[in-house]
Each structure stands twice: as C-alpha cells, then as structure tokens.
C-alpha cells in the first residue's frame, strides 16, 4: 500500500475507531439514546445521519473559500437543514412505518453535534475528497455505535433481533431495556467495557506503577 492510500484509509478509520463519535467523543447523544430501541431503527437512523453528514461535508468543503468567516455557523446549519429536509421527505416516501417510528428525530438530525462538529472542525479546512472520506468514516462509526446499542436493547428488551425472535415463546422480556433508563444504562455499560479494556491494554503495555494514571475528563 502506498502512502496516499494509507492516509486515505487512516482518514476513514479515524471516525470508526480512534474518534468514534458515540463512544469516544460522546457526541450526538440524543438520537443515539432515543431511537435505539430496536436494531432496525438504529440502522436507519445511522444511514440517514451518514447521508446528511457526507452531503453536508461535501458542500461545506466545496464552498469553504466562499463562505465568510463571520456567518459560517449559520451557513453550515442552513446547509445541514436542507439535506435533513430532503432525508425527511425521502424516508416518508420510502417507508411510512419507519417514519412514524423515528418521529421527530429525523428532523432533529439538524442539531446532531457530530455533523456541525465535522463541518466546522474538518470539512471547512480540507479538500472535498478528504472531507467526504472522513465524513463517511464518521458516519460509519456513528452507525456502528447506534447498532451496538440497538442490538443489545432489542435482544434484552424484546427478545428479538431485526424483528426475528431469538429465544422462543418462554422469554420474559427485560422491559426496562427498551424504556428510557435502559438507554442510559446500556451506553454507560459499553463505556465501562471500553474503559476496562483500555486499562487492561495499558497495564499489559506499561510497568505496573505507571498503569494507574489519571482518567480522561469528558
């Protein structure tokens, strides 16, 4: 693999792993917790957000020399809102059931901090191609994060995965998982798991006395 390809790959992987919007940066929490009662909702939300993210980042990057610095945030928001309106009508046309399940949260993609954050911190500074690759990575990372929550919550709270029953008729659903507190608990649980894993890895890599270092503040 030559250097150019390696860099492109890095750009893509950044969103999936090192700067995962859900688990590492804790951005875009509202849709993350609100729509992840089932895996299919989570996946649709992830795809919709990724679409808006890629289109907005492309446009912001293309217009980066045109947009005056003073009104850039307002411009970004209008760009994002335009694409969200498109997505909103598209989902309504494709599947009304899905539209009802996601409700106002499709329109609330506008205020997803992941998108504005990417537009401001990344897309406004780089070339369109890099911006799109980075946005695709971020979108994929966001979708993976949503799926991680959606699958866990659907399996425990409903006994199904993508609507397919897993445990048979005798399964007693763990209802709290699909209720609001479940969302907080599952995401908290994932973060604990990652923190534990990172600590173990650090411990293996470092001498024992340096392992207990200060935590990263959120």
């Amino acid at each position: 693999m030559n250097l150019g390809q390696a860099k492109t790959f890095d750009e893509f992987m950044e969103g999936i792993w090192r700067q995962n919007p859900v688990f590492v940066m804790a951005l875009g929490m509202c849709p993350t917790l609100a729509v992840t009662v089932s895996a299919i909702n989570a996946l649709s939300m992830g795809v919709a957000t990724t679409f808006v993210l890629i289109c907005s980042c492309l446009l912001v990057s293309l217009l980066r020399r045109v947009i005056p610095k003073e009104v850039r945030i307002a411009t970004y928001i209008v760009i994002i809102a335009t694409f969200v309106t498109v997505t909103d009508y598209a989902i309504q046309a494709i599947s009304l059931t899905l539209y009802d399940a996601l409700g106002a949260f499709i329109q609330l993609i506008v205020v997803n901090c992941v998108i504005l954050g990417r537009a401001e911190a990344h897309a406004s500074k780089v070339s369109p191609l890099t911006a799109v690759i980075n946005a695709a990575g971020m979108g994929a990372g966001f979708t993976i994060g949503l799926l991680a929550l959606g699958t866990v919550r659907e399996i425990f709270g409903n006994g199904t995965l993508f609507g397919i029953s897993l445990f048979g008729a005798n399964f007693q659903p763990w209802v709290i998982m699909v209720l609001p507190p479940g969302g907080f608990f599952v995401l908290g649980g994932w973060l604990l798991l990652f923190a534990w894993w990172a600590k173990r890895r650090d411990k293996a890599a470092l001498p024992a006395d340096k392992a207990a270092e200060g935590h990263q503040h959120a």
Partner: peptide, 22 residues
C-alpha cells in the same frame, strides 16, 4: 472506581434518575 470515572458514571447516574422519573 477508575474505569467508571467520567462519562460512564454520569450515564449510569442519568439512568438511575430516569428510573426515578418513570
């Protein structure tokens, strides 16, 4: 505990509060 500091602890707390509000 070390691994629970930061966002993870806040989320668990929010879950408990949310449980109360139910």
């Amino acid at each position: 505990p070390g691994i629970a500091q930061g966002t993870a602890m806040t989320l668990v707390l929010a879950g408990i509060l949310s449980l109360g509000f139910m």
